[in-house]
Every structure is written in C-alpha cells, then in structure tokens.
Amino acid sequence: MAKLSASISETRFVSATGIAAACLLVGALLLFLLPREDPRVMQLRQTAFDIFLPAIDALGRPFVALRNTGTKVAQLGGLREENDRLLAENEALRLKINEMTQSQFLMQQYRALLDLPPEPDIELFPVRVVADLSSPFVKTLVTKGGKNVGIENGLAVIGTNGLIGRVISSGSQSARILLLTDFNSNIPVVALASNVQAILGGRNNASPELQFLPRKAKLKDGDLLVTSGRGGRIPIGLPVGLVRLGKDGEPPTVELLDDMQGLIHVRVVKGSAIETPPDIDVSPARRKAKQ
C-alpha cells in the first residue's frame, strides 16, 4: 500500500517539458490574438507600472546617481569653455528677449485689430522619468507622477528644447509617454517658413518622417516645425524639429530639437483641451420628429 501511494505521489500527468510547451502555446496565442492597443492591455500596463514603480525607481536610483556623478566629473575638464559658451548664449538670448517683447506687442495689436479670441494659457509641470523603455520596437518613457499630479491622457510632453511626445496613459502614480520616434506616434505639425501642414510619424529611429505632405509642398531645409494644434489636444505652436531635405529625391526627414536619450526630467503641457462637438442625431425617427 505504501509502495502504491509512493508511486502515485511520484506520478506526473505532465512533464516540465510539457508544461513549458503549454506555456509557449499560451504565449503564442496571446501574441497573435491580443492587439497591442487593446484598452485592457493598456490598463494592465498602467496598473503594473503603478504597482512596480517604487521598485523600478529604487533599483534605478544607484545607476542614475552613478551616471550623474560620471557626467559631472566629465564636465569638470571643460568648465572654462562651458562658461564662455554660456556667456555668449546669454548675450544672444538677451537680444532675443528684446525681439520677442517687440513681437509680443505687435501681436497684441494685430489680435486686437482682427478681434481674435485669446489663446488658452498653457501650464507646464515637471515630472521625473523613472524608466526609458526604448527598445528596437517601442519608444516610451514612464514618469513618476500620474493622475496624482494632474497628468491626463493625450497631454503633450516637452523636453528642454521642444516637443518629445504625448501621454498615452496615466495611472494613479505613473504615466506613460509615447515618444515622437515611436512607430505608433503621429503628431500634426506645420512647417513655419513654407506653411506646409503634415503628420509627423515615428519610424523607431532617431528621425521621424513627414507623412501626408501635400503633393506640391515646397519645404525648405532647416524649416522649423511646430505643432499645428489640429485635433485640439496638443497646443498650437510647440516647437518640434527642423526639416531636413533628402538627397536625390528621398523624402524629407525631421531632426528633432530634443535628444530623446537620457531624459531625466520632462515637462507636461497642460492646455485647455477643445471639447469634441456633440454627436448629431440624424436618425429617421429624429428627422421625422423635427418635421
């Protein structure tokens, strides 16, 4: 009897290999049946980040501290050059401020003449990046701070010099930012000098491309791209990048103003979103009732 029970306890219905094969099959099924943009998947990711954020943050802190120390030590050698560069930049910026004050005054005059409604104010709030999920197939960041600091889905995010992406999901403690370089990123932009509208689409590399360009569009090399505000979520006029014309008929690419690597702090742009117009009921019953 004891022998029988021992042999039963050692009986296995499925071997470890069989279990591994079953897990493999489940993985394959999930991979091909569950779309990446499925709302449940988005929710799952956001919840996971909210749960694991303290651990990711704590594990990453020593590395970030080490990197910052390394950067500071590397900068020590070029302090004099850096100081000279900053002085020159400061002088140039003072001149720019004078020009901008004049432009602002003129703009106010023109707006008053044309009786244009005022543009909504934008609010910027800084958040810290805790994870950079850039890999060969995805370009996203995770920030410490989500709905608890007022971050909502769809808000624009800027770096030091210009737009870097938009918030794709916001949880209680964290938010996920889709970078402009991601394959799934599409931002409406306008080229300032040539006044050409297009969609800036990511290609999973450093330079996104301009899509849906008008057939006879004449872009200029170095033309500044800013957000066009189409869609109503991202404020108008945020600088994005510079147009770089391709050689030998190649499509133009975009040199982004901000470096997407090693971002530690970013700013979320909170503008007043334009509400979607209400759906018009055009059903036959409704039309009949109107008549």
Binding site: A20, A21, C23, L24, V26, G27, A28, L29, L30, L31, F32, L34, R36, V41, L44, R45, A48, F49, F52, I56, A131, L133, S135, F137, V138, T140, R176
Partner: peptide
Amino acid sequence: VLSEAPIGYWAFLFG
C-alpha cells in the same frame, strides 16, 4: 507588460 512589448512576445521567447 513592463517593456511595452506586445503581450506574449517575451513570454513566448522565454518559454
């Protein structure tokens, strides 16, 4: 989930 890969991608490759 944490690397933003399609769900099942790394589960399949790990297996």
